[in-house]
Design a protein around this nucleic acid. Structure first.
Length: 574
RNA sequence: GCCUCUGUAGCUCAGUGGACAGAGCACCGGUCUUCUAAACCGUUGGUCGCAGGUUCGAGUCCUGCCAGGGGCGCCA
């Protein structure tokens, strides 16, 4: 399928060039040609504001628009164009062309608007990346949904996409996890021991401890914290994968931070940074002010290993290796991204919460310090998600706490159980990553019968209903004459043809949420048509019914594609 | 204090420097003898946080201010 706005952009650029060649327009560098869909139907399907050329050409924009239109080659999708003041070129897609697209849509099927932007080049989306210390929470879920949708869109744009999960099973948090389970195990055996407040308080460790007792009795009493950590980690990962699978998310690769330690990669990376002159040993960083120096002295730190990130624009230098010889999180993080880039991805998307903003900047500085180009790395920062509930007593919304260690959170599993996998995916996707998201749990549950999720899916269901009924009656669309279709059907096809552009924009701007809004708009064009345009009705002549049935087959293809791009199901019935 | 994101209808939010700022929910009033009404049709609703600036044109770009979130660790 062609991207019509691109076709028009190319044609206009050629027309400007032709006008310059003939001397009707003065020579100037042709700027980007932004063709977009105007808000009003009376203004056409595609529009270009030629006003931007007025200054460059030193001519009246209306005159320029007329000149361009006169030079445009014949376009199969738009035989005539209109010029509107103060200088718009408006393009109306021809009805005949739209009718032809119906068979084209059906022919493309599940690969509808499969683009070639990526040319099969490798791309990676790293997302979720939660440490296996507890279940997937609502907070993780936003990143999971956004990341997976981004991956699906990159695939639609023609990239060979890998989904990766980066996790850390070393470090202090996992020490606490192991010990938390060990203490829970002892509690199950009747020992009177308490969990320190900074340990993992969640019920899930109590459950696991009970299972360990059931299976092994008290024979694990002598096991180390590492044993319990491994047991907890294995169970958590199993849980995390099942939770993600429940919303149709599956990673291709799991990258373990500890492998960077085992392979000594972190040290070779540090050496490379050092050789490039970006690393030094000191008790405090080079730009430290008097307060910081005093603070360091008070703490009695031995010299640590610093990365001179300030020379890349960072506000201060960062510790790579603490004075006790243990690397901070930053060093393996840089090593990991170095590894990623060396694996040759053209695009490496990273979905993170905004609380990692500074860290992501430091990693990019680190990549530069290695003499590498961080350009393939694109970070999608999700603003915080708060699960909120209405508090009757106080008469206001209050946040549902999500701290894993406090054991007070809503999990993805809870969310799916209360709503549905499709509802979770849609609601988490249908927002700009830059907007803070208050996920009103009760409201989403309440709206389950009246919300965009079902509004969109119902469009597909309605198509499927027609197909079922047609089959029962032995009616098919063979030999359909699409000339019998009306304006409503064509309006839907017009909207459907925007899908390619939506995919492209979502990919090049790293904005997967755009597909969710498009889905809603598409459904709102569909339903009024369905209401008016009957197929199997006594008053509809057979030849018209055939044409309409063919139309609904195309509509079903479009909705199926859109729903799958969002990771949602396309049910035959609801 | 510094960095960053956000501020658009009663609520939740869209909005490529372009034409008269949109959707969902909520509210109000209509529509099921036809392929499922989880739908459709209609009505109501706005100083785009405030003030300047750039531009032929600003919700969109720049500056300042106000309000809210997040970050500023030899934590991850």
């Amino acid at each position: 399928m062609k991207l019509l706005n691109k076709e028009l952009e190319k044609a206009i650029e050629g027309a400007i060039q032709a006008a310059q060649d003939s001397g009707e327009l003065p020579p100037f560098e042709i700027p980007a040609i932004p063709v977009s869909a105007p808000k009003r139907a009376s203004q056409g399907d595609l529009s270009y504001p030629a006003m931007g050329l007025a200054k460059l050409a030193r001519k009246n924009p209306l005159e320029i628009a007329r000149m361009i239109v006169a030079k445009l080659p014949a376009l199969d999708f738009a035989p005539e164009l209109q010029v509107a003041p103060p200088g718009f070129i408006n393009c109306f897609i021809a009805s005949d062309y739209l009718k032809c697209q119906i068979d084209a849509i059906i022919a493309e099927g599940e690969a509808l608007f499969q683009l070639e932007i990526g040319c099969g080049k490798p791309a990676q989306v790293e997302f979720v990346s939660a440490n296996p210390s507890g279940p997937i929470t609502i907070g993780h879920t936003r990143g999971a949904v956004v990341g997976d949708a981004m991956a699906r869109l990159l695939e639609a744009a023609g990239y060979d996409v890998q989904r990766e999960y980066y996790y850390n099973n070393a470090g202090n948090q996992m020490f606490k996890l192991g010990n938390s389970l060990k203490l829970r195990y002892r509690q199950q055996l009747g020992d009177v021991v308490e969990l320190p407040p900074d340990y993992y308080q969640g019920e899930y460790l109590v459950d696991q401890a009970a299972d360990l007792v059931a299976q092994h009795g008290d024979s694990l009493r002598g096991e180390s914290w590492e044993f319990f950590r491994d047991a907890a980690e294995a169970r958590m990962f199993d849980w995390i994968k099942r939770s993600l699978a429940s919303i149709d998310i599956k990673h291709d690769a799991f990258f373990n931070e500890t492998s960077l330690f085992a392979s000594e990669t972190i040290w070779t990376v540090l050496d490379r940074m050092r050789k490039n002159g970006h690393v030094y040993e000191a008790a405090h960083w080079e730009g430290a002010d008097e307060d910081e120096i005093a603070d360091v002295k008070a703490k009695g730190y031995e010299p640590a290993t610093w990365f001179r990130s300030s020379s890349f624009g960072d506000e201060k230098d960062r510790v790579m290796v603490k004075s006790d010889g243990v690397p901070t999180y930053t060093l393996p993080d840089i090593a990991y991204h170095c590894d990623k880039l060396e694996r040759g991805f053209d695009i490496a998307v990273n979905v993170l919460g905004t609380d990692h903003f500074s860290q992501a900047q430091v990693v990019k500085h680190g990549i530069r310090a290695l003499g590498m180009d961080p350009a393939p790395i694109h970070v999608i920062f999700n603003q915080m998600v708060r699960a909120v509930r209405w508090n009757e007593k106080r008469g206001e919304y209050e946040a549902v706490k999500q701290s894993k260690r406090a054991g007070d959170f809503d999990t993805l599993d809870d969310l799916v159980e209360m709503t549905s996998a499709d509802a979770v995916r849609y609601h988490m996707l249908a927002r700009s990553p830059n907007s803070q998201l208050d996920f009103d749990v009760d409201q989403v549950v309440k709206q389950s019968n009246d919300n965009p999720v079902y509004y969109i899916q119902n469009a597909y269901v309605r198509c499927a209903g027609i197909f079922r009924e047609a089959e029962e009656r032995g009616f098919d669309d063979a030999g359909a004459d699409l000339a019998l279709l009306g304006e409503g059907e064509l309006k839907f096809i017009r909207k459907a043809l925007e899908l390619g552009n939506v995919i492209e924009q979502a990919v090049i701007n790293y904005e997967p949420h755009k597909i969710a809004f498009f889905a809603q708009e598409l459904a709102s064009v569909f339903h009024p048509v369905y209401d008016q345009v009957r197929v199997l009705h006594s008053e509809v002549p057979a030849d018209t019914a055939k044409a309409r049935l063919r139309f609904y087959r195309a509509a079903a293809v479009v909705f199926y594609r859109v729903l799958r791009l969002m990771g949602m199901s396309a049910p035959e019935r609801m």
